[in-house]
Write a protein that binds this DNA or RNA. Structure first.
Length: 230
DNA sequence: CTCCGGATCCTCT
DNA sequence: GAGGATCCGGAGG
């Protein structure tokens, strides 16, 4: 390697997040725990994606934890990793702080932040948020939105507003073109409850792995999983 | 406000 | 070949 870059003092190695022991590494350590422990800390965090067409930032108001086949006490049939690793879900088994993005219903993208230590499948689905920067661009990406609070009020909406697709799956959410900033003070008024729209989630209706900020207008109202008859 | 169905294609069985 | 970690619009109360 040749680090001597003419005309660039300091050769850029101290750029934020790239330095060993820097902010990104501290954040990654926080994320390297069980998704259910990480969830309350991620609420209120701001995620930014500097897309080709510009930046959009979302303040996260609702997340949902998904586990892997490691947790025999709490089997998670709603998780993509329930039956083990596949090409699609491999990212969830990797190190924390990366994006796991999947495509569903033939038209929607959904974004997760991978949690847990390397080798353990765990992730938080970003279910809802409030656009705090780049609202005009978010509206351009989601022209059917009727109100500001609807721009990212749902997992597929949030992914669309941020300009995230499966092409971003596996990318590091803590480094450019992404950024994740925890709130200065952890959120208070965090509530938890059953999942939304996940069928067959574990043999019990009490599956309290969804977390949200109490009273936030962008949080989706609870709806039971759709029962598909035939 | 609530309920309901169609859209649309990737992923795993 | 089936079904999905969803969204949206339309119909009805």
């Amino acid at each position: 390697m040749n680090n001597a870059t003419p005309g660039v003092p300091g050769n850029g190695l101290t750029a934020g997040g790239l330095t060993a022991g820097g902010p990104a590494d501290e954040l990654r350590q926080l994320l390297s725990r069980d998704a259910r422990q990480v969830a309350p800390q991620l609420l209120g965090a701001v995620m930014t994606h500097e897309g080709r067409d510009g930046p959009v930032s979302v303040r996260i108001t609702e997340v949902e934890a998904y586990l892997g086949p490691h947790d025999s006490l709490h089997p998670d049939p709603g998780s993509h990793t329930f039956r083990g690793a596949t090409a699609r879900n491999a990212v969830m088994f990797g190190p924390a702080g990366h994006l796991y993005v999947y495509f569903t219903y033939g038209m929607h993208h959904c974004a997760n932040i991978v949690c847990g230590p390397d080798g353990v499948a765990s992730a938080l689905l970003l279910r809802a948020g409030e656009i705090v920067a780049g609202e005009p661009l978010a509206l351009k990406r989601r022209p059917t939105s009727k109100a500001s609070k609807d721009l990212a009020s749902g997992p597929a909406r949030l992914a669309t507003a941020l300009g995230i697709t499966t092409a971003d799956s596996g990318r590091d959410a803590l480094l450019a073109p992404f950024r994740l900033e925890l709130p200065a003070v952890p959120a208070v008024d965090v509530l938890s409850g059953p999942r939304v729209g996940v069928s067959g989630a574990g043999g019990t209706d009490e599956y309290p792995w969804r977390f949200w900020l109490r009273g936030d207008p962008t949080v989706s109202r609870y709806k039971a999983a759709k029962v598909r008859l035939k």
